[in-house]
Amino acid sequence: MTTFFQAVLDGFAQGSIYALLALGFVMIYKATLVISFAQPALMVCGGLFAHHASRVWDIPFWPSLAIAVLCGAVLGMVVERLALRPMVGKPVFTLAIITIGVDIALRVLANRYMGADPRGVTYPNGGRRYEFLGLSISHQRLGLIAVTIVTVIALALFFRYAKTGLAMRATALSQETALAQGIRVGTMFALAWAIAGGLAAIAGTFVAATGAGIEQNTWIIALKALPAIIIGGLDSIPGAVVGGILVGLIESLTAVFQPDVAPWLGNNFALVAPYALMFLILLVKPYGLFGTKEVERV
């Protein structure tokens, strides 16, 4: 039983990373109806910004995180301005493919910076573990969960009460109407990308702080946020959080139990388990758990 709850706890921590990334995806999707395949690159870049601040400039962890978030947000805005703004009004598929192009190009630059060695971030007392009812969690993971919760609540408050948040919701609902109310729709797009870039940077920083650091193929992690947003529903913010946590849980639970329960699925099935879960959920609910069903009008 302890194994089970330990797996749940680990899954929750890992799920926080997916939730942060998924939130970024949903943010961009709601504002521009585009799925940004550039998130993996933004995550890797965010992690590298934090690495640079932490290891090269010797800045403590939390300010490094802040620097990473800021740089990530700026990077997101730059990507939006250069690659996506000229394409407003083109089919969303075209835009999605363009983000793939951005992703490839950015990752080449990131790989160039990285070279062959993994790039980590120094986390104070990172190794310290807390024991509770036979479960154990490291200081880092606790920090990650705390940061995720704070971020999600802050975002929810922002969208609920801030004037800009309201403007963003209006833009998501209908760009034309929002424009007619005097909202700068372009700025809202940029803001959505900035938030997504910042969220990806938080995720990247914690990926760099925990475990192996950022390597050439760390970006694959970010792709697991894709099943998360599909499970939660593309246009639902709570869905992104729930989907992200679910993906983390399923991954951690399969990693612990699948080798004994279903060894025929092969080694490392945990890595692809989220995609299998996505297929199952889509068979039942084609628009995810919380997504809005598309209404057809002729």
Binding site: F93, I229, I230, Y287, E294
Partner: peptide, 12 residues
Amino acid sequence: LRGLYLAIVTLG
């Protein structure tokens, strides 16, 4: 499924 949902599922 339609559009980008399909893209992600085929990616899976």
